[in-house]
């Protein structure tokens, strides 16, 4: 019984949240990796793109709600998501035309692109705040729980509760669908193959008649899909706040680099590595140890390795360790 309680505690407070967060990070990191391999720079505006996609989704959701449209038990935001992806894609392609294209034509060094992305980041950040202010917005509706903590306790008779929220299951399901589609797209379709060719060797790809502008536009559209979805799933799960989205930049980059920058599979693994380490290190292990240890050895402190505020330190530490010992990441990524 004690063992089961410990297991439930770990599942409830560690495995479920880390899996959800990992899926969100993986989607974000996929976007970072795609931009890096096709456009060859680290996009600092990524977090704010997520915020933009989310705020558009929130706007469309409230329109739908005012019309009385809903998805029943599922959040209405899911219905608004495709429209928001279109809007975000338009913004990203527009940004590319207005900003990045010029530097691409000049074949500027990557650091100039990064600088430009700082400008885009500041502008997007201001624009997003203009649209919705800085307050926390919660926009999840529909059925909140699949398993309620109290129901679980009554059903099983265990001391530990286990709750499973709709948004958590939704995150994983949507992430799996999108990742599966993305891999199919990159590996099986003509456009996807041309993207990978462009990423491997730009000159050779141009020589074989691949249209670079088309590749770039398709990349931005996919990035819009990934960032908006990641942002909306994160927002459904934890609420929307512009500053938090800006801060997601760090774990997202950590995930992409840990997995191997430029490698889509790595980005996914990296997302889960970062999320599980973050949650494991900030998890309060006291209850688990109380259940598992013999009576007289029970811990008196919280047995938390680091307090929750230091979760950024965790993604950062993983980043540094990987960069020091395996600069190309867990899966072989590009390292210039």
């Amino acid at each position: 019984m004690d063992f089961l309680n410990a297991l439930v505690n770990i599942t409830n407070l560690l495995i479920i949240p880390a899996t959800t967060y990992g899926a969100q990070l993986a989607l974000g990191a996929l976007g970072v990796t795609l931009i890096y391999s096709i456009l060859r720079f680290s996009n600092f505006a990524h977090g704010d793109t997520m915020a933009f996609g989310t705020i558009v989704t929130i706007g469309i959701t409230s329109v739908f709600q005012s019309w009385g449209i809903s998805l029943g038990p599922l959040p209405t935001a899911l219905l608004a998501l495709p429209f928001a992806v279109v809007v975000t894609a338009a913004l990203l392609v527009g940004t590319d035309f207005a900003v990045y294209r010029f530097y691409r034509a000049k074949r500027a060094v990557p650091i100039i692109f990064v600088m430009a992305s700082l400008g885009v980041m500041l502008m997007m950040n201001g624009f997003v705040r203009f649209l919705a202010g800085v307050k926390n917005i919660s926009f999840a509706d529909g059925e909140r729980f699949i398993i309620k903590a109290r129901d679980f306790k009554e059903m099983t008779g265990l001391a530990e509760p286990l709750g499973l929220r709709t948004t958590q299951v939704l995150t994983v399901v949507v992430a799996v669908i999108i990742v599966a589609w993305l891999f199919w797209f990159l590996n099986k379709t003509r456009t996807g193959k041309s993207m990978r060719a462009f990423s491997d060797n730009e000159d050779l790809a141009l020589l074989s008649g691949i249209n670079p502008n088309r590749v770039v536009i398709v990349t931005w559209v996919i990035v819009a899909l990934l960032t908006t979805t990641a942002g909306v799933l994160y927002g459904l799960d934890k609420g929307y706040q512009p500053y938090v989205y800006f801060q997601l930049l760090l774990p997202t980059f950590a995930a992409a680099i840990v997995g191997g920058l430029g490698n889509p599979l790595g980005a996914i693994v990296g997302g889960f590595v970062v999320s599980f380490s973050e949650v494991m290190i900030t998890h309060v292990w006291k209850k688990v140890l109380t259940y598992l240890m013999p009576e007289n050895l029970e811990p008196s402190s919280l047995m938390q390795l680091m307090s929750t505020e230091y979760k950024f330190a965790v993604s950062f530490a993983i980043l540094v360790i990987v960069l020091l010992f395996k600069p190309t990441g867990l899966f072989k990524g590009q390292s210039v």
Binding site: P110, I111, A254, F312, A313, S315, F316, L319
Partner: peptide, 18 residues
């Protein structure tokens, strides 16, 4: 490389403030 340094220092600053 240059953009890794950017990301690393961004993280350090967050940790110092934390």
């Amino acid at each position: 490389r240059s953009d890794y340094l950017a990301i690393a220092t961004l993280g350090i600053a967050e940790i110092i403030v934390a």
